[in-house]
């Protein structure tokens, strides 16, 4: 998979309450959730971002609540992937499960800035920054997690498993 887009940069500990405030969790509608994505961090984010943009963040992205509405809002808003120094555990699982591409790379966070253009090659495991001509390594994923991603998320993976067991 190759993803190209420009960066929205965030700091450490971006929690699920700022990604999608709880006051909007009275619906599971993905479009509606997406319209409030990152609202408590930057009210204008959803207006300013473009389809395919990439979020780059520091440590512990997605900490806090288990709400899957958070990665769902990011994905539905049109963010192509999230790159962070590290992810909170439940957010990490949720993103993999729903098919929002996420990558761990401290270098990308440290050596890229807002608006830089990135290209992520998840097969090769490399991120290129076209704005400063630097290349960064992606921490490789375990095989089992790759198999979930290549199935198209946990639902599709589980459907195959159900068919296999019949």
């Amino acid at each position: 998979m190759i993803i190209k887009g420009s960066i929205w940069k965030f700091g450490d500990n971006i929690d699920t309450d700022v990604i999608i405030p709880a006051r909007y969790l009275n619906t599971s509608d993905a479009e509606e959730l997406a319209s409030h994505c990152m609202e408590d961090y930057d009210r204008e984010f959803i207006k300013k971002m473009k389809q395919g943009d990439i979020i780059v963040a520091g440590e512990n992205f997605g900490c806090g609540s288990s709400r899957e509405h958070a990665p769902l809002a990011i994905k539905t808003a049109g963010i192509s992937c999230v790159i962070a120094k590290s992810f909170a555990r439940i957010f990490y699982r949720n993103a993999i499960n729903i098919g929002l591409p996420i990558f761990e790379s401290a270098e990308t966070f440290e050596q890229s800035k807002q608006g830089d253009i990135l290209e992520v090659d998840s097969e090769v495991g490399v991120i290129k920054n076209f704005s400063n001509n630097k290349e960064f390594q992606i921490n490789p994923l375990p095989d089992f997690i790759r198999s979930i991603i290549s199935a198209g998320g946990l639902v599709e993976y589980t459907k195959k498993e159900v068919r296999r067991r019949k």
Partner: peptide
């Protein structure tokens, strides 16, 4: 603690 997709799979499997 898990998200909804994980829980949905647990409901089924």
């Amino acid at each position: 603690g898990v998200g909804s997709t994980d829980l949905g799979v647990v409901l089924a499997m």
